[in-house]
Design a protein around this nucleic acid. Structure first.
Length: 463
RNA sequence: UCCUCAGUAGCUCAGUUGGUCAGAGCGGCGGACUGUUAAUCCGUAGGUCGUAGGUUCGAGCCCUACCUGGGGAGCCA
């Protein structure tokens, strides 16, 4: 009895002349009356193993059922390939079909499909070269994120997915309720009576784990979260999802510069990890999906990110002599066209912009002495825009409280957040990295819906 | 949500000023071929032209609404 071996291992350590057993899904079958070639993929690598079957040695009906998409197991001798295109192949002795695949109705063909078509067949698109590569890389990046933080002493903190806080201010939220929507209990003023709801109060899906993350950081030192995040915004773009994954490190005793250093080192580490550990998948994507990908990844690793203040950015944009669709001016938020100009035309490398006007940033950001800017930072990447947003947090109780009142935020709901500033407050910083946006950059894919297995977007929750 | 483009065979698309306009390539199926590489060659079957209305003697084509998808913008990660 031969033990099954994964194709990746088989190709890394070929045992020529030995019998092997491989199991996987048929990508293509070619041949004639005498000889049949099967390209088999088991998902462990982008590379297919070629199976060669002498037609006379197998049932005609068995060979007929080996079609694109079918699942089979093959026992055979591992030999040097006689043909070009691959070094080794398996000379089949025995083939077992686990699951047939009707060639008439199986949606995937040998030829290329559009991304839109594959998105509608998200349950099967894992079986394509492109999506196999994307999701192997996605895994490698998730693993590398944990490795990076673990190696430098950060703790993985699980912040809640259901939250009773609506003060995060990061966008529209999905309600979580067990109330019967047909007979919603209401008070005398017509407002919904959440006392009868499961948690006895209004609850939502989280839009950020940051506030809770800060609580952890102000005791454990350095923490990070890595979990699902939900935004009920009606955003229809290739860069937005209603359900996405976010990494949010939060560090005590880090100022904004420490924060930027970490963000840059972190992102470069991940890209370096991909270059070293996802070579074949990246080469495929570079060749077939996005020419120049590997070069761009190396460029990011090898070059310092530009660091400028918001004020400097406005000056550069104003002096550019360009005509903008949206006006440039101190106090106005930077538009996509402005960010794109800075990253893709002016500096030609990732840019970190800091010290934004306080009016266009969140309440918790540390206020600068100038009274009008906050210690915020946005990391901008070519083609993607904002990939990281972060800041040094306001650790001074009075200043934070004043800002909360200024913005008329629900002070009562934030008692626990404010408590950290009353008891042993400390300077601290953190940022959020959109996982899918980062995967977009690493894989060179164009649409965020193609780097998450089952995208959730407005009007789409299929699968 | 706004702007814009698109929806015709399983897939990718062509279809002229409204009148043989139901088409091609690929895929599938049948056949040929002694080692293929998105194999090649011959043959063959597939469609309520996104949905619902409307204009017209006549609509794939023109008009209206809606649905779905792409691109751009906004919101953001």
């Amino acid at each position: 009895m031969v033990r099954r071996i994964k194709v990746k291992k088989l190709m890394a350590e070929p045992t020529l002349g030995k019998d092997v057993l491989v199991k996987g899904w048929v990508r293509t079958k070619r041949g004639n009356r005498n000889i049949v070639f099967i390209a088999l993929n088991d998902g462990s690598t982008i590379n297919n193993i070629q199976i060669v079957a002498d037609a006379a040695s197998f049932d005609e009906s068995l060979l007929k059922d080996i079609t694109t998409g079918a699942s089979i197991g093959v026992t055979g001798r591992l030999v040097e390939s006689q043909g070009g295109g691959q070094n080794i192949e398996i000379s089949a002795l025995h083939i077992e079909i686990y699951g047939k695949s009707d060639a008439n109705t199986y949606p995937l063909q040998k030829k290329g499909h559009s991304m839109e078509f594959l998105r509608e067949n998200a349950h099967l698109r894992f079986r394509t070269n492109t999506f196999g590569a994307v999701f192997r890389i996605r895994h490698a990046m998730a693993f590398a994120i944990h490795k990076y933080f673990n190696d430098i002493g950060f703790f993985y903190l699980h912040t809640p997915i259901i939250t009773g806080s609506d003060a995060e201010g990061a966008g529209e939220m999905f309600h979580v309720t067990t109330l019967d929507l047909k007979t919603i209990p209401r008070g005398e003023d017509g407002a919904i009576d959440f006392r009868e709801d499961f948690f006895g109060k209004e609850t939502n899906l989280t839009v950020s784990g940051q506030l809770e993350g800060e609580l952890g950081a102000l005791a454990l030192g350095e923490i990070y979260t890595f979990g699902p995040t939900f935004r009920a915004e009606n955003s229809n773009t290739p860069r937005h999802l209603a359900e996405f994954w976010m990494i949010e490190p939060e560090m005590a005793f880090y100022d904004l510069n420490d924060n930027m250093d970490l963000a840059e080192d972190f992102v470069k580490y991940l890209i370096r990890y991909a270059l070293e550990n996802c070579k074949e998948d990246l080469e495929f994507l570079d060749r077939m999906v996005n020419p120049g990908l590997s070069g761009r990844l190396k460029f990011v690793v090898e070059n310092e990110f530009v660091r400028i203040t918001y004020t400097e950015a406005v000056d550069i944009l104003s002096a550019s002599g360009r005509k903008w669709e949206f006006p440039v001016g101190w106090g106005r938020d930077l538009q996509a066209e402005h960010e794109r100009y800075l990253v893709e035309e002016h500096f030609l490398k990732p840019v970190i912009i800091t010290d934004y006007p306080k009016e266009i940033k969140a309440f918790y950001m540390k206020q600068n002495d100038d009274g009008r800017t906050v210690r915020a930072m946005d990391v901008l990447f070519p083609g993607i825009g904002e990939i990281i947003g972060g800041s040094q947090r306001e650790e001074v109780y009075d200043k934070l409280l004043a800002r909360i009142r200024e913005l008329k935020l629900p002070e009562k709901d934030l008692w626990w957040y404010l408590d950290t500033r009353r008891f042993g407050t400390a300077p601290h910083s953190g940022f959020g990295l959109g996982f899918e946006r980062f995967i977009l950059f690493v894989t060179g894919m164009a649409n965020i819906r193609d780097v998450i297995p089952f995208p959730r977007t407005p009007k789409n929750a299929e699968f």
